[in-house]
Amino acid sequence: MKALVIKDLAKTYKGGVEALKGIDLEVEQGDFYALLGPNGAGKSTTIGIISSLVNKTAGTVEVFGHSLDNALVQAKQQIGLVPQEFNFNQFETVLQVVVNQAGYYGVPRKLAIERAQKYLTQLELWDKRNDKSRELSGGMKRRLMIARALMHQPKLLILDEPTAGVDIELRRSMWDFLQQLNSEGVTIILTTHYLEEAEMLCRNIGIINHGVIVQNTSMKALLAKLNLETFVFDLAPNSPSCELEGFVSRRIDERSIEVDVDRDSELNGIFSQFSAHNIKVLSMRNKANRLEELFINLVSKEATQ
């Protein structure tokens, strides 16, 4: 079953700005889907329309078979939204925020408190349940919005940049939590500017730019399009300079060298040449995130067309 089916979705704002130019998108049930795009590409407008915060100009949206036009209540029941901006009442306590939201979905108070305990504990906020939400740190506020979105146990969770401004440790714990949710059957749509996040979590990906979907494929298929990767090798002090036969390389400074590697080439060749020149490699890393390179290629190619 499809979790989300979007057909010919268009949005033109009052000022005449065409945010979406008739996009088509399908997300399978159980998927972890990344919706990426530069600022102003139309991601938030798409999410806004799916979650009924933005009125569409044309097109159709179905959530688990329920059309936003004909079965809005049923469609809304399936969706949990974690918006980009903090939009809870800052004067309410953490517990009030989540329990009230559950109430809006018709969850009885007793059950809502049980669920609040479950999700706030999982997101390490249960100890803060009686604190005013405005007193929470930025990372805690983000987690509170995730807990709030889960209170009615949606089948489709939409996260609009959920880890923006969150430190790496917390981000990783949020990734674990989201992966666990996805493994329990929750379909997740994620927008993010951290492309390693999308690469690590998502199975399928859509890239939107200027209101048009420019790529909609599996993460594997997309990454397979990358023909060239650049690796940075950190060398031991006083390493001699050398030319790497069969590779394009650049010496960056005394202790590091950049090498472009073709998809079909083996890294062994580089290491054997380093050994032959008595160069010790201390560490190596990708120069840029693979998805990031592809993303920039796709978006800039589209811009020049």
Binding site: S51, L53, L72, V73, I79, N87, N89, Y104, R148
Partner: peptide, 12 residues
């Protein structure tokens, strides 16, 4: 504060 969105996204 945009928390009216809590109501708008819910089936209220």
């Amino acid at each position: 504060q945009h928390n009216v969105e809590e109501l708008l996204v819910a089936p209220v």
